[in-house]
Structure formats: C-alpha cells, structure tokens
Nucleic acid binder design. Structure first.
Lengths: 222, 222
DNA sequence: GGGGCCGTAGTACCGCGGTACGACCCGCCA
DNA sequence: TGGCGGGTCGTACCGCGGTACTACGGCCCC
C-alpha cells in the first residue's frame, strides 16, 4: 500500500486524483493540501510515501514546497505535476530534489506507474521532457572516457589501497584516516606511499585530482 | 499503427515480443533481426517506426547498431533493452542516439508506453536508471540559478586569488605556480594563505576539493 | 595628502607529508 | 615446509606547505 498526499489549489483536481488513486487497492490518499505551506505541514504530519505536487499554486509554490519537504529529511518522495511542459519548472523541480516530474495530461496508468516508481525510490520524468533532458545530457556530459573506473592504475591497487585513495579524495589528512580506519598513522603513511607510487601521483593532491577524475570522489561527500 | 523491428539474438525472446506487440492493434512487428548488422540492414529496408534493440548480442552489439541506425538519418527511433541495469550500457546507448532505454523485466504496459512515447518522438528511460541520469545531469549541466560559482566564498576572492585557486586545483605546487605566474614563491604563499582563509579551507587539498565541487577545476585540465 | 585595497616580496618557524628503510603477522599455495 | 602477498607498525630524515609578521609600490577615492 502506497500512501499519497495530494497537493493542488483546485478542489476539483484534488477530487479527481483521490477518486483515481482510491479506486485501486495499491494506493491510498491519506490527505490533501491546497497550497505549499499546507503541503509542508501535512507531509510532516502524515508522512506519506508520495507527495503529488502541483507546481502552480498561490502563495508558496510547488517548487519551494518541494525543496522544504526534501530538506526536512523525511521519507516522503515528491512527484511534481504541471499542466504545461515548461521545462524551467522541470529543471527547478528536479534541482529542488523532486523524484519525478509528470504532466497533468498523463494517462492514469502513466501516473500510477510514476507513483509506483517514486515510491520505490526510483525517479521518473515525463517522456516529453525526457528527450530534452537527454539532449542536454548528451551535449554536456563528457564523452565516456572509456569508463575511467577501469583505469589500469586503479586495477593495480589492493582493496585497502583503494579505500585509502577514497579517503584521500575526501580531503582527510593521515591522522584522520588513521582514526577512521583505526590503524596507526605509520600504517596510513605506508599505504599512502604505495598508492601514490602505483597511480603515478607526486603527492596526495594529485591523488585527489586522480580520484575526482575517476569519479571515486564525489562532490558533497564529507 | 506503430511498426516495430525486434532485434535480439535469442529467437524465443523475439517470439515473446512479437506475441505481445501483435496482440494489440496499436503495434505491429514488421521484422526481426538476430544481430547488429542485420538490424542495421533491416531498418534501412523496412523503415520501422521503432527498433526494439537488445544490447548484448554476438558480433556487432546493440550500441554500435544503434549508432549506425541513428547516423543513417532515417526516421526510425531506437528503444534499447537490457537484462541488467548496467549503466555503462545506458550511457553508451543514450550517447549513441537511442531514444530510450528500458529493462527487459519491465511490465508489458511499461514497454508499450515506452514504444508509444518513442514512436511519438519522445524519449523514455527506465525509472531505475532515471535517478542516475538525473544525478549526472544535475552535476554536469550548468544549473541556471543555483550556480555554485556564485558561492559567496568565491565572491570574496580577488581576481588574482581566483587564478591562484584554479592553479591549486590543477595540482600545481607553490614553485610551479610561481614559475607560471612569474612571481616569487613567497608571493604565491601569501596568495595561497589568503585563499585558504577566505574559502575556509584547512590546506590546499581541501581547496582542490572546493575547486572541483564548484566546477572551477575540470578533469583532464593542466 | 591620507587611507584602503591589492599585489608583490621577504624572513622565520613549525608541522605534516612523503620516503626509505626494517620488521612482524597472517593466509594462501606450491 | 617454505615462499609470497597483503596489512600492520616503527624510526629517521628532509622538504614543502602553511602561518605570522613586516614591508613597499601602485591605484583609487574621499
């Protein structure tokens, strides 16, 4: 059973979603909200699996509400709906942390598939928008690099050394690495030295760059 | 009526798709191919609306076949199928110009929705992959508003200090920076110290990470 | 003219990082 | 049984990195 909170400023629209979702055993509408602030409050209160969020609303709009819901750290996933395929909305919504973006004219089975996917932790985008996303993607994402994680220099590292490399990529100094791995700093130095030699890095700084280039290190990782 | 070419090296799999697609009036399987080369040839010959393409095949694989079909400039759209959610396949396929990427364990209605979307000129991605695509997308495509290069810590840097930060991000040591900027190493140290203080970094390693997170440093540079 | 910001430069000091050893334990395998 | 790779730990040494402080010329603006 997937619990859903329906957010839309139009009562009739909310009614339509409720009828649709309650007509099948898989989903249940546990609440409704008419604007962003109410959506944030009811999400915290009802903890639905999925929040069905309209973008255009008076007061706090769906984007801002989505951002707050996501930042609150709860379990609820947000599936954003809009009447138009205005992709600035889509971009903003997805960057706000929405798990999906669909058009209101989606057929019922598409909406249900979207809710199912979002509830399962996946993401979903309206097909009409997917093309643009993919075009942008193909244009911006650098060509392959023949999968850098298969770099021969990486292959020569032992498991432990790979862990060390990741730790270096996080910006930790030897003492911090020693503390987190519960070994002595001498041991860390030994490992670091071997890692540098194997990947051909002059110092740990170039190891950090190496880790980033290969995608071992990720922005925002602490 | 949507015409479909089914490409898979396993006859039984092709049969399954044919039964499914011919069971509904909306789609019609107009041909089959057992490997990439045959897929390319039959696509040119039959001009199907959609090519249902398996990735893993002996000889020319689905990726290469997709690339050739797309480059041939025909009207046919390619919908790639795979058993596993190996995202290196997904990336390669989408970069090869595929209009969609689904898993073989997709439910029939998902597959049909995918074919419908692709035939209509839209694109479709398996929900399980959409999240990764979005993550990549968010990381690579310049965000129009929450541009990290507007980070207040960056704004406090002078032009010279920004140059120094970029140089740090390239992995250069103080001597190298001094040589390239034609200043003394003392000057470099002064700048570096100020940069670290302003961006709140403990050492140049965290400055490197900072530069990468903000997109100041780019893989493959320097 | 005076004050601030910026870029430049220097000295002095300390600590971390990196290297070069040597050493021990463990599990695996010939 | 011995050898070998991997992980662990230690000592010693040196150099680069980072900090603190001072200093000066150029520039802009009050």
């Amino acid at each position: 059973m997937t619990t859903v909170l329906v957010v839309d400023d139009q009562p009739l629209q909310r009614y339509g979603f409720r009828v649709l979702l309650d007509s099948i055993p898989e989903t249940e509408v546990v609440g409704e909200a008419a604007h962003g602030a109410e959506a944030v409050r009811k999400t915290a209160e009802l903890r639905p699996d999925v929040v069905l969020m309209d973008v255009r609303m008076p007061g706090m709009d769906g984007i801002e509400a989505t951002r707050r819901i996501v930042e609150s750290g709860g379990r609820s996933r947000v599936l954003v709906l809009t009447t138009f395929d205005l992709d600035e909305y889509a971009h903003a919504a997805l960057r706000a942390g929405a798990s999906g973006f669909l058009l209101k004219d989606a057929r019922p089975e598409e909406l249900l598939a979207g809710i199912r996917a979002v509830a399962g932790g996946d993401a979903v985008i309206a097909p009409a928008l997917t093309r643009r996303i993919l075009d942008e993607y193909a244009r911006h994402v650098p060509a392959d690099r023949s999968d850098p994680s298969e770099d021969p220099r990486l292959a020569s590292l032992t498991d432990r050394e790979r862990e060390i490399l990741v730790a270096i990529g996080k910006g930790w100094n030897n003492g911090e690495i020693a503390a987190r791995f519960v070994v002595s700093e001498s041991t860390v130095k030994t490992h670091v030295g071997r890692v540098l030699a194997k990947i051909g890095a002059r110092d740990r700084i170039q190891a950090v760059i190496f880790a980033y280039d290969l995608g071992l290190a990720r922005p925002g990782a602490g």
